[in-house]
Amino acid sequence: MPVFKQVSPSTDSLPTTPSSDASPQLLCTCPPYPFDEHAGDALSTVSAASAAGSDNNHLASGGLAVAAPLEQPSQQQAPLSLPRRHVATCAVHSSHAMALLKQKAKQQQQLQLERQREQEERRRNPFAPVRVAPSRTFDLYAGSQFRGKQRSGSHSYDVMVDIKHVDLNNSFLCGYLHINGLTDEYPELTTYFEAEIIGPKHSFLTHKWDADELTDEEHWTLFEPFKCFARSVFNGLDGQDSDEDMSDSNPSLRSSRHQYHCDPLKYHHQNENVVFMRWKEHFLVPDHRVQGISGASFAGFYYICYNKITGEISGYYYHQSSEKFQQLLLKHVDERSFAAFEFR
């Protein structure tokens, strides 16, 4: 639902055009500093850093931060509640507050102009593309990679996964799965897969792809973190039993675990350390038109468990006529720089 600026509801007077009042309100975001004694070192370092950077013209001309700490701020002048370290690093309380306020006011004016322009643009073209912000959680983001192995019987194959797009809002992500040495014809095989992220949109119960509840149970329960859901997912909501089970435990713990236990419907990966998914491969990359490959098949799907903290993915492949419990073990490839794209 689009949200617009609310004007005061009035039934007898016409709305006035939005006021151009852009009085800025800076909020101080500094955490409280209980100790004044060390204010000095913050100040000195700021000035040190700025002095060191004085070969740069921009800085030498007196950027916002530079001048203030060079003055000897006396303890008396600073308000008691505002230690000097705080002053040195906080936009609200620095001695340049006025300049900053002016700058902010100017920016807010421009932001307001921008909003008006947006409204006009919207009027000119009500069918302008609606933005869909790319989403990420931990190592699940577009551009992320995982490396590891798939084990099938005594064989083991190198696997790499490229995450291409993540849409947590729709419990969706997709990417490429590269597997090496599976067949002679395709020493490197790449497929496109889509993930159903278990949560408000997708249940633990698969109900498709030839998987019945038994299949679901024998696969999901292979994941340690799933154990606490197991009974409620596969035996229905056995509230009484779980009450009995936990009657001796501490009541606050019980209530939280109770909910946890009995309502997989309320399960959301946001609140958990692990993300459960189903990965289904759809076609080959780069040529999606290639149909069968001898010696390999991607007709089945993976049960997946991603651990946010360790960055590891484990999974089990399931297909009616394939070897059971082929295991996928992947680790996130550490990456410290992040590009970003956005669909238009």
Partner: peptide, 17 residues
């Protein structure tokens, strides 16, 4: 925690310079 003028003078060369 020198916290005094002496440090303010001394640091520029020390920290980054």
């Amino acid at each position: 925690a020198f916290g005094t003028t002496a440090v303010t003078d001394a640091t520029p060369s020390g920290v980054v310079g």
